[in-house]
């Protein structure tokens, strides 16, 4: 499905249909958590969610038309942001709690058992609180999540990228997702003069999600290096790819 052929409304409908299922941890360890059991739970859940995330990305109109190289680069860059924004959306109605999954709901203070994670929990809770204040709507969330993916890395977008066709397609895709978000805001009934403010407020969230993701990535890397938690398969690849890119 080419994004240019879709109206903003159709684009949003496709995003709704692309949504991944809610994942369960299954076999949650008994509370109270230890550092190892909490990290194991979080990484196990993340690994499951990653598989669904890739399926979700492939359903975003036009994503699979990008070069495979660009698809990989975008997903490698944004995977933790996508997990985090999903977490924030699930937690939006539950102040003080992080709804990692229906069977993994954590209070802020439960983060005390893992060195360095409380800072990240606080960032996640603060950003979730901001989403709540903004009364973020489901369709706005879907557009923002897609935008995080498509905007994840500048290299596929830049002039002189390795695949100019893919670069052009990505630019069209970014325009399409912007049109979709603008359409969603316009349909909300907000007065015209407030619509651009709302757009700006929503877009300003994205840098905070990126910041939380960067901190989370550093933390996960340190946990792995200290052997607090084994990281394997897809999650290991995504972690390595993200940290290697920084170098």
């Amino acid at each position: 499905i080419y994004p240019n052929a879709l109206s903003p409304e159709q684009f949003v409908i496709t995003l709704i249909e692309a949504e991944p299922p809610n994942v369960l941890l299954m076999n949650r360890p008994k509370k109270p958590f230890t550092e190892a059991s909490m990290m194991m739970s979080l990484t196990k859940l993340a690994d499951k969610e990653l598989v669904h995330m890739i399926g979700w990305a492939k359903k975003i109109p036009g994503f699979v038309e990008l070069s495979l190289f660009d698809q990989v680069r975008l997903l490698e860059s944004c995977w933790l942001e996508i997990l985090m924004v999903g977490l924030m959306w699930r937690s939006i109605e539950h102040p003080g709690k992080l709804i990692f999954a229906a069977d993994l709901i954590l209070d802020r203070d439960e983060g005390k058992c893992v060195e360095g994670i409380l800072e990240i929990f606080d960032m996640l809770l603060a950003t979730t609180s901001r989403l709540r204040d903004l009364k973020l709507q489901h369709k706005e969330y879907l557009c923002l999540k897609a935008m995080i993916l498509l905007n994840a890395n500048m290299f596929p977008l830049a002039m002189g990228s390795n695949d100019p066709d893919s670069s052009v397609k990505l630019r069209h895709l970014l325009n399409a997702i912007t049109d979709a978000l603008v359409w969603v805001i316009a349909k909300s009934g907000l007065p015209y003069r407030q619509q651009s403010n709302r757009l700006a407020n929503l877009l300003m969230l994205l840098s905070h999600v990126r910041h939380a993701s960067n901190k989370g990535m550093e933390h996960l890397l340190s946990m792995r290096c200290k052997n607090v938690v084994p990281v394997y398969d897809l999650l290991l690849e995504m972690l390595n790819a993200n940290t290697l890119q920084d170098h």
Partner: peptide, 13 residues
Amino acid sequence: SHKLVQLLATTAE
């Protein structure tokens, strides 16, 4: 990222 490429390249749901 072999697994990522594999998942992207497959057409299976």
